[in-house]
Nucleic acid binder design. Structure first.
Lengths: 145, 145
DNA sequence: CCGCATCCCTATAGATACTG
DNA sequence: CAGTATCTATAGGGATGCGG
């Protein structure tokens, strides 16, 4: 029987509390995959270029679930697989990602793989945001409906 | 002679690169102190409620400096002290903090210490932002001028 | 004093091997 | 295929040292 780990908050600060939740190198990458790469399965997260380890992925999915940022359901085609998707609370993280990307667009110009995103952010941020939301809603209609 | 640690980037992704820089529980708390609590000295960062350890603080100040997010100068009244302050690159992180705070205002309502910030965010985000910037400029005029 | 640097030790993160 | 178990590496807390 494992000892219940009471997640201790370091202070009453909203930033400190946020960092208690996703202040690490992996948690937000899973959320990124959900937002921008239409990934919804364990093996899809594993296939991202950063190469997250299986135990870390498992742990982060649990933490995101416990925090109410993602939800999950059995894959309709295969009971041994799961589908992960963002809750409303999770989807509300999008503005943070977009601001982060804007900062990156300004100060990490040396990331060639990101130039398309940067251009879209600069030209048509609202369009980008709308498209991310639309993609999610499309997926939801097909898989949660 | 210490071995130079080449900070390895995990991928070409802007989010991954950002997390390589501040994907930990402490780095952004130092930036927070600079933005919202008008802290500019080593001992002031140490006095924050999260109680950062001295070696961690020292390490994070170096990393933030190396990343061009903060700069430093000798304290005018005492050569044994230093003043730390945000560069333009650092100040440009403010929108990320504000989006984070907005998310927290919606989903961490149980942080009584933050209610004032949340209210201000809800009522007058632009005013809040302007005030943070104004406070910084006031400090700069007095200390960097 | 003040800003760190260093050391020691523990806790946690994470890579790899393995299992149901 | 989706995770767990095991092992190792790193982050971090706390005490202390040390130069300016």
């Amino acid at each position: 029987m494992p000892i219940e780990k009471t997640v201790q908050q370091r202070s009453q600060c909203v930033f400190s509390n946020a960092l208690d939740l996703f202040g690490d190198k992996w948690t937000l990458l899973v959320v990124r995959d959900l937002f921008f790469f239409n990934k919804h399965e364990y093996k899809e997260f594993l296939s991202s270029p950063e190469a997250i380890a299986t135990n870390i992925l498992s742990d982060r999915l649990k933490k995101l679930y416990a925090a109410g940022i993602i939800d999950e359901k059995i894959h309709p085609e295969n009971r041994s697989r799961k589908l992960y998707y963002l809750t409303t609370k999770g989807k509300d993280l999008l503005p943070i990602f977009l601001e982060l990307a804007k900062w990156g667009a300004k100060y990490m110009k040396d990331l060639p793989a990101m130039q398309n995103l940067y251009r879209k952010l600069g030209n048509d941020e609202k369009g980008l945001k709308a498209q991310v939301i639309a993609d999610i809603q499309k997926w939801e209609a097909e898989n949660l409906g």
